[in-house]
């Protein structure tokens, strides 16, 4: 099962729901990895949905792409990475008409970044749904060097840009689509606890 129940947290931390089909002329679904399963569940609830749907999917090493293609969406794109897909996402959002329904599924990093694009394009928050599936890895910003480290699964972790040892906060910026990482050994240099898997 690709679902994870996040523990209750602070007010800046996003919460995710369960995708449900909504009425509308056009539907954009953006997902990565196990997020595909949320789209498959969605398609099973509404036989007419896929004919009006554009799917943008980043497999991240999983093999759901064929199953998604078999849904016969109006448009299907399989991208090698989010970064490679983002220009296309912007074009699609920019060309969208009133009433577009947006569905985001998969990792927090994917949903956060795609949410940002959708909101920047003027899609109302009420037309965007999210569902977390798969990895609980986090997209982290180092508050010191500002570099983003993707797919962080342990606390603490090493900033992939400046090399500082950072602890993982729940404080989250929707603008950056990232959680905040803060130096863990500033007051006792070198005293870095062994990394523990997130939520363990």
């Amino acid at each position: 099962m690709s679902k994870f129940q996040f523990p209750e947290s602070i007010a800046s931390r996003p919460v995710y729901g369960t995708l449900e089909p909504r009425p509308g002329k056009a539907h954009l679904m953006i997902a990565d990895a196990e997020g595909a399963e949320a789209i498959l569940d969605l398609a099973a609830q509404d036989a007419g949905l896929m004919a009006k749907t554009h799917i943008i999917y980043i497999p991240k090493g999983t093999d759901f792409a064929e199953a998604l293609r078999a849904l016969e969406p109006a448009q299907f794109y399989e991208g090698p990475s989010y970064a490679a897909s983002v220009q296309r996402i912007r074009k699609v959002l920019g060309d969208a008409h009133m009433g577009l329904q947006v569905y985001l599924a998969g990792t927090e990093g994917l949903m956060g970044q795609a949410m940002n694009e959708a909101v920047s394009a003027g899609i109302p928050a009420s037309a965007i749904q999210t569902e977390h599936r798969g990895s609980i890895a986090r997209r982290m910003q180092c508050v010191h060097c500002k570099g983003i480290t993707e797919d962080v699964t342990t606390d603490p972790f090493v900033c992939s840009h400046c090399g500082l040892n950072l602890f993982v906060r729940d404080h989250y910026s929707r603008r950056l689509a990232a959680f905040q990482g803060v130096c863990i050994d500033a007051e006792d240099p070198g005293n870095v606890p062994a990394p523990v898997e997130l939520y363990k």
Partner: peptide
């Protein structure tokens, strides 16, 4: 980090 947040979000910690 906090720019763009609402009142409850930036006070979250």
């Amino acid at each position: 980090f906090d720019i763009g947040m609402n009142f409850f979000e930036w006070h979250a910690p």
